[in-house]
Each structure stands twice: as C-alpha cells, then as structure tokens.
Design a protein around this nucleic acid. Structure first.
Lengths: 198, 198
DNA sequence: GTTACTCGGTTAAAAAAGCAACTTGGTCAT
DNA sequence: ATGACCAAGTTGCTTTTTTAACCGAGTAAC
C-alpha cells in the first residue's frame, strides 16, 4: 500500500517538514517580515542553500500548504466518474472537504490554523503570491473543463465561488464561533452557491 | 570557550551518538551476537556504509567509549604541572575520576552502566578487542613517561593497577552494593595501590 | 551621493550520505 | 564437499548538504 519509502525519501520529507514548521512558527511569533530566511535556516538546522533547494522563495515556506493542493480542482474534474457533470464533482468534493473540516475550506477553528490564515491574508507579499497560485490553479481547471473562453470563464467562476465560501467561513470563525457550529450554514452556502452556478 | 561548531560537525556528532546509542541499547536488549549491523543501521536510520564510516568495526560500536579515553593517561602525564611527578598526577587523576563516579573506574551503579560492563566482559570478541585498546594506551603512556624498557614497565604497571582497581570496584557493585557505599574503600584501595607503586 | 548594511537568492566546490552490488568467511543442510 | 545462506565490511556511483563567496536591490548614515 504505502510506497516503500527509502531512507533518502524519508529524510527528505522530514527535512522539508522541519523547515516549514520552523518557518511558520517563527512567522507566527514575530511576523513574516521580521524573520529572515537565515533565522529559519538556523532554527531548522540547515544551510541557506538547502532551504532554497526545498522551497523556491520565502513566501513558499508559508504557501506550500496551498501549493500542495495545486491542480486539485482540475484533478477532481478529470477523475470524475463517467456520467457525472464537472460541477457536481466539484460540489461533492467541496462538501467532503467541509465535512472533514479541511483548512482550505476556511471551516477550521484550530487556533494554529486561524493564526495561519491571518498571517497569510494580512501579509501583502503572501497574499500577492497566493493569487499567482490561484491563477495557475484556474488555468489547470480551465484545461480540464475544455477549450476556449467558455471553459476559462467557468473555471474562474468556480474558483471565485470557492474563495468566497472559504472567506465567509473563515470570517465566522474569526468572529469566535466554532467550526461545528458554523458547519450547517457552510454546507447550505456551498449548496446554494454551486446550484446557482448551473 | 566552546568551539564554534559548524552545522556539519554538529550533525556528525549527533549521528555518531545516535548510532552508538541505538547499537548499545540493541546489544543490551538482545546480546551482541544476536544483533546484526544491519539492524543497527535500520534502528539508527542510516545506511550500512554510513555506519562503517563512523565506526570501523562492529566492536567499536561498543568500545568507542573506551576509545574516546584513548591516551588519557599519557595526556595526564604530559600536561601535569611543573614539579609534579608523573605518578602523583596519575594518582590525582584517578581519584578525581572516583569522586565523580566516572564509569571507567568501575565505581558507578547506574543500571545501564552495570549492564554495559557486563556486556563488554562477557562477550569474547569485545573483551578481546578491548585489550588491543589497552595496549595502545600503554604504549602512549610509555612514550610520555620516557624511553627505554624502564618507561614501558612503569606504564604497564600503572595501567595494570588501574584495571585491577576498576575491576575490584565493579565486582562490589555487581554484588549489589551502591557506588557511594563503596566509594571510601575505592579511595583507600587506590591510595594504597598508587603508594605501593613508588 | 557615497558608503556600508541587510536581506533574498544563487553558485561552485567539497564533504557526506545513500544505494546496490560485491567480497570474504563462517554455518548448516544435504 | 557442495551449495545455499547469512553477516561483516568494502567499493563505485549518485544524490544531498554544507560552506563560503557572491549578486542585486533596498535603506539608513553622514
């Protein structure tokens, strides 16, 4: 089942996690701009070039969590069962994410996750970079949906909807409500939004 | 004060410790001969060639603790203050080791240390290899003491005395007594032995 | 305005580690 | 004794990491 991870692969993954963890925890403590990549390298006990071999930019130290979900929407569409419309596949996928309180849905009240979201959206360079990821995601989804301007438009609308939903959920959490409390509304919002898309 | 240890040196030392710890704990649990170097490599999460880059033989995985004290007697003699006789320097050094319950004196009742001694002295290949270390130690001490057969003889006698003292202490500990209980006798034995050497 | 820092990011060379396949020597079964 | 196996070390090759030095942009001092 699980790939026979060699020693090399296992250590690489651990190093990557250690770097990202050190970075995020330093960022949360002091703010993105007050922490240098050198500080992170020292905290993670690696050298600076090694850090950049794992993450292309300082921003990616934070955004890799989004990056890891790159192209997910496109994949969902491509891998949907036969006879299922793209939009329903995406809808189900989002609802499933909601049900497991996946952080990407904004529906997660773990303090760490909340602080992380705050970090991303209140740091300009991070928010900026995040939109680049979203653009690529959008392109991939467009390709999965077909060709021409039509596919592009639908891809943009779907992702815009998902962003609005996530942002809405996050806002309610930020106001102090719990994830499980918000869950029903989140599901209702999602259903309405996806139905409206058709 | 502390050497400015680079990243490389620090990690190397940690790896070395991790290997040795994994090895000794496996040996203590299953016995020296029932544990393969491969088992150790797996437990320490390194590859077999890497293991042998750190320790030349399987025995050295255990004996490095003695190896790290290699040439200590010689050093004590060379670094003694002016006007101090070699024998007194060695005497004081041994007494200091007794006072801090250094495992090399045999005067240490930590279960781990006791088990470790048992492991070394009941495993033929280990005991054998240990004598090789002692020989080298003896040569170094002889060189520090001077030249000729005279120096050699004295070196051999000093180290023989230390071995007897350690073995005596260890025996008492093995009989169930505590280190602090044995300590006065150990000091008296040492004083007598060293005085007799003059 | 020049000087000197700091910070994000890169480069080249050398050390270290991983991997797989090999040698050597012993043990056991047939 | 032959062949199969296992364990201690080794070898050659590749990948990863460290190190120190550098680049280019920004910025504060004077």
């Amino acid at each position: 089942m699980s790939e026979p991870t060699g020693l090399r692969a296992r250590k690489k993954e651990r190093t990557r996690d250690a770097i990202a963890d050190a970075a995020v925890s330093l960022f949360l403590e002091h703010g993105f701009d007050r922490v240098s990549v050198n500080d992170i390298a020292v905290a993670a006990e690696i050298s600076k070039p090694t850090l950049f071999r794992y993450f292309p930019t300082k921003e990616d130290l934070v955004l890799h969590r989004f990056a890891d979900h790159q192209g997910e929407a496109a994949r969902v569409v491509r891998d949907r069962g036969s006879g299922i419309k793209p939009l329903t596949a995406l809808h189900w996928h989002f609802r499933a994410a909601l049900d497991r309180y996946d952080p990407v849905t904004g529906l997660n009240d773990h303090p760490e996750v909340v602080a992380f979201h705050r970090l991303v959206f209140t740091t300009p360079s991070l928010a900026g970079r995040l939109t680049r990821y979203q653009l690529e995601d959008e392109e991939a989804l467009a390709d999965a949906l077909g060709e021409g301007i039509q596919a592009r438009l639908r891809a943009a609308q779907v992702l815009a909807v998902q962003r609005v939903l996530a942002r809405t959920n996050w806002q309610k959490i930020a106001d102090g409500r719990t994830a499980s409390d918000v869950h029903p509304e989140a599901v209702a919002d999602a259903d309405q939004a996806f139905n409206q898309l058709r």
